[in-house]
């Protein structure tokens, strides 16, 4: 019974759970009341459970766009869950245990992260509908030869993508917070955000972690290209070009931060550009098939 229930989990179940969590979180910020937050987190947890179950049961390959987008959404869903609990109090001096009892809002974390998660789940569904003959990840065959390196490549790119997405979300929040301060708008209680310093640190760490992973992922991918079906197609594919573009943007970002000491606001704008490139790279068809992918 439970097994068949899990088999029947679809994108809709995942997306709707996250959507409910998002709506409850938004309601909490607009009309502070007891219970909104914990209920929202409950829906978020249900969505994360369904999401995890789907990935475990359907085992979509990270080599196909729908699979990689869905996995990225999963990484960000974990990020949502962690952030909602960890930043339950904007005021760090407040007791954490009070956070879920307070009618006062904690950081408006979910309202930034969940739309991206929901968007990625929806995008994954669209990609699946567009190319229904998707491949499943073959756990048995991944450990041998090219397939092993293909899987390593896929995982490195996935985690780098997670880093870019976290950097993007931190940057969006940073830009809004910086805009508030620039316009001398009072610290908002309706949509409370973390401090500029915290958001900037988050962005910096995300990029610092994502860049080596992306570099390694690209290197592995480059070595795999000669083994692909058509050499010229692979080198000039949108996926390769956009991923290389993303890597270059990263390089520029790191130079601007550590070499040119560019203000954090401009770095945040670059992070948004990097995320846009990431989306292009993810949606584009993947050249490094794991062998069992189409």
């Amino acid at each position: 019974m439970t097994g068949s229930l899990i088999q029947n989990i679809h994108h809709y179940c995942i997306g709707l759970s996250y959507l409910c969590a998002f709506l409850l979180e938004t309601a909490r910020l607009l009309w502070p009341a007891k219970g909104w937050r914990i209920t929202g987190l409950g829906f978020g947890a249900a969505g994360l459970f369904a999401h995890t179950a789907y990935l475990l049961v359907q085992q979509p390959s990270p080599a196909v766009p729908y699979g990689s987008v869905l996995m990225l959404a999963w990484v960000l869903a974990i990020f949502y869950f962690y952030g909602t609990v960890h930043f339950a109090n904007v005021d760090r001096s407040a007791k954490w245990s009070d956070a879920f009892r307070q009618a006062r809002p904690g950081a408006a974390w979910a309202v930034f992260v969940l739309p991206v998660v929901i968007g990625l789940v929806a995008l994954s569904r669209v990609l699946l509908t567009a190319a229904p003959d998707h491949a499943a990840f073959n756990f048995a065959g991944w450990a041998s030869g090219d397939r092993f390196w293909g899987a390593i490549h896929g995982l490195l790119i996935l985690f780098a993508s997670g880093g870019v997405s976290v950097g993007f979300l931190a940057s969006m929040m940073y830009l809004i917070q910086a805009r508030r301060l620039r316009r001398k708008v009072a610290p908002a209680t309706v949509v409370p955000l973390l401090s500029l310093e915290r958001l900037e640190t988050m962005n910096r760490r995300a990029i610092n972690i994502a860049f080596p992973m992306l570099t390694a992922g690209l290197l592995v991918g480059t070595l795999l290209i000669p083994h692909g079906p058509s050499l010229s197609d692979n080198w000039l594919s949108v996926k390769v070009l956009s991923t290389t573009g993303l890597w270059l943007v990263f390089l520029v970002l790191l130079y601007l931060r550590y070499g040119a000491h560019v203000p954090a606001r401009r770095l945040a704008l670059f992070s948004v550009v990097a995320f846009s490139l990431l989306l292009v790279a993810l949606v584009a068809s993947h050249p490094f098939a794991l062998g069992d992918a189409k």
Partner: peptide, 18 residues
């Protein structure tokens, strides 16, 4: 929040620094 002019500075500074 802070409801006096001198203490309101703390609200602003907390928006910037962690």
């Amino acid at each position: 929040g802070h409801v006096s002019v001198p203490s309101a500075a703390v609200d602003f500074v907390r928006q910037v620094f962690d």
